[in-house]
Each structure stands twice: as C-alpha cells, then as structure tokens.
Design a protein around this nucleic acid. Structure first.
Lengths: 179, 179
DNA sequence: CTTTTACGTCAGCCATGTTGACATATCTAC
DNA sequence: GTAGATATGTCAACATGGCTGACGTAAAAG
C-alpha cells in the first residue's frame, strides 16, 4: 500500500488492488442483500421472490422473457416463484396487446407495499453510503460498476451527459412502454 | 444528479438514483460471479467452494470461526464444502499453536492452482473496469462500497492515507499471523 | 474440576438453481 | 391457411447450499 509510482513490485500491488475490489463486491453484496431476508421469511418467501418483485416493480408490464433475461435463470425456476407471487396476489398478469402470447407482469397494491418494505432498508443503506462518500465518489462508483457489468446490459445505466458514444438509447430497455 | 438545490422533484430523483445503485450492484455481482461456475462444475464444486478457497487463499492460517464470520453461514453448511475440499486435497488443516482446538486452514499447491484459475477471469474483469474508469473513479468505487459494508467489516479496507479516524489497524483482521 | 470454547457430525428440511420433455396458444411467413 | 417459430407453462427429477436441532470431543479458562 506504500510503494506507489513504480515501487519494487508493481504487479503485486495491482494484484492486491484487484483482490480488494473483489472482496469489496463480496462484502457489499453480502450486507446489501442480508437485511430483507427476515421480512421475506415472514411471508414465506426467499430472495428469489424479492428479485422478481423488484424488477417487476421497476418495469411494469415487463414480459416473462425479459425478466428471464435479467435474472439469468431458467423459466422453470422463475415459474415457481412467479407462480406463488401471482397466486398470493402480489403480481398480476395480463396478455400483451400486440402479442397476446405474452403475460405482462405488474405489481398489485399489495405487491407494491411489499416491494417498498423490502427495499426500504436497502435504500437507506445506499443513501447513507452515498451521503458519506460524496457526489464525486458516487460518480466513480457508478462508472466502475457499470464497466464491471457485461456490455450487453450496460445500456440500462447510460448517462445522458456521457461524451463520445451516445447511441440513441435514452429509454430503459425495451419494456416499460408496452401497456 | 441534475436538480441539485431543490429542483422540481428532488425526491423522485433521489429515489431513482438509489434504485440505479441497487441495480448496479445486482448486475455487477451477477456478472462478476457468473464466470467461474463452469470451471467449478468440472471439479464437481459450486460457488460455496469458490468462496472458501478464495478466503483461505487470502488468509492463510485462518480459523474455522473466522471463516464462518466472513461467510456468515452456519458451521454445518461450511463443514460440508470444507470437508470436501480437505478430502480432495485442496486445503490442509493443522492445529493452532497457541490454541490446539483450532484448525488453521491453508491452501495446498493444488488449491492455489484452482484458486488462481477461478479468480483469473474475475481479476481480468475488474482490471478492465478499473482501467476504463480511471484512478479517480476507482477511488470513488472503493469509498462507496466500503460505506455500503457493515461497519464491523470495514476495517478490512482501511486505507493508510485516510485522514481523520485512523485507529491502529494496519494489518488485515486478526488472522494471517497465527502460524 | 467445572465450564466454556472451537470444532465436528448426523439427520432432516427448505429454497432455488438445473436439465429434459412435452403442451398450448399465438404469431409470422410462405 | 397451413407450417413453423415463438412465448409461456408444466411435470418430473435432481443438485447445491442454505437452515435448525441435537449431540460429541478435545482443549482452554476459570
């Protein structure tokens, strides 16, 4: 951690730096996801339910395939938790207008309530970290994390002020406007 | 991010900003952990094995309880994967010197080899993101992530140049020097 | 000497991922 | 309008990796 500017072993420093990043990700994700679990347990749900509720809440009218692409799980796995959430009245399905094979997903009021309860602690945690770290650090946080993400999904996080390659994507992905 | 100092709807922007952070974490972690899995499958292992191998490699001589505290799982869960790794010759155990009830864990050569294979892609991914984002962004990334982590574990990531509260912790946690 | 600690183990349960096969409704193209 | 592709669902079986609870042993600590 001393030995900046071409010390005796820059490769070791690089390695150490990379490993610290990996651990930061591990610990941050561990703690970030750790809190909502008790609430979920009260409902007989797990993290998978949380993820589904979250992304349906964020993308009202999302299709099943879009959700699958985000979560990167099989339809059978999704079907299990999604089925429960629909049966228990947290999510509604309705056929697509243009394509009636699709099941457009949306949170019910009950679903929105649970979503809010679940993410509240996470929002507080992030807000605290953002406040403590300051705007400049937040900018760096976003930049690095975006670059860690597979290129295919970076579009979700494009900033309008980005100079250079600003394609034509301002809207989220494809969903959201299919109601 | 626009709309500082009381724009039309600062609360909405804040909410949006926080949700983007949550999603950045989700996608980054999804892609960061996604790659090593094929390699693990070749060995008949899963992600749990990877985590154990990683943290034992990082903290040679770590005790079982320390590992449990990092992973935040039960000893029964750890025992399953750790047992396999020891039996298969990736990790060795030896009794502690001061306290012979402890089993100090260490990677074997075989273990180190696998560790390297597993984290290689992850190191490449982080290195690419760091290079693209630049030193300043990296600094912000570290600052924000550290603040997302539970206070109890932030010590692992303390920087020597940090002004203000620099306690007396320079060495990692407690392990590492117990051989 | 008793209690606490560090670790292990057996047994069973649950959540959540997987593969493979098959069914149905609907859209698209020829 | 029929054939094939697509969106979704479902059944069955299996693996991983969490969990709880109970019990055991060796060593440290009082």
């Amino acid at each position: 951690m001393a030995d900046v500017k071409g010390g005796p072993n820059p490769l070791f420093l690089r390695e150490e730096e990379l490993r610290q990043a990996m651990e930061l990700l591990f610990f941050a994700y561990r703690d970030f996801t750790g809190e909502p679990d008790q609430i979920l347990a009260d409902y007989g749900f797990g993290r998978a339910h949380h993820r589904v509720i979250y992304f349906v809440g964020r993308n009202p009218g999302i299709t099943v395939s879009e959700l699958l692409a985000i979560l990167r799980i099989t339809k059978q796995s999704l079907s299990r938790v999604l089925g429960q959430l629909v049966r228990d009245g947290f999510i509604t399905q309705r056929p697509g207008l243009r394509d009636r094979r699709q099941r457009l997903l949306e949170l019910t009021d009950k679903g929105r309530e649970l979503e809010n309860k679940l993410t509240e602690q996470q929002r507080i945690r992030i807000a605290r970290a953002y406040r403590t770290a300051g705007a400049e650090a937040v900018e760096g946080f976003r930049t690095v994390l975006t670059n860690i993400i597979d290129e295919a999904d970076r579009g979700r996080f494009e900033r309008p002020e980005a100079p250079g390659k600003q394609g034509a994507k301002a809207a989220p992905p494809k969903s959201a406007a299919r109601r």
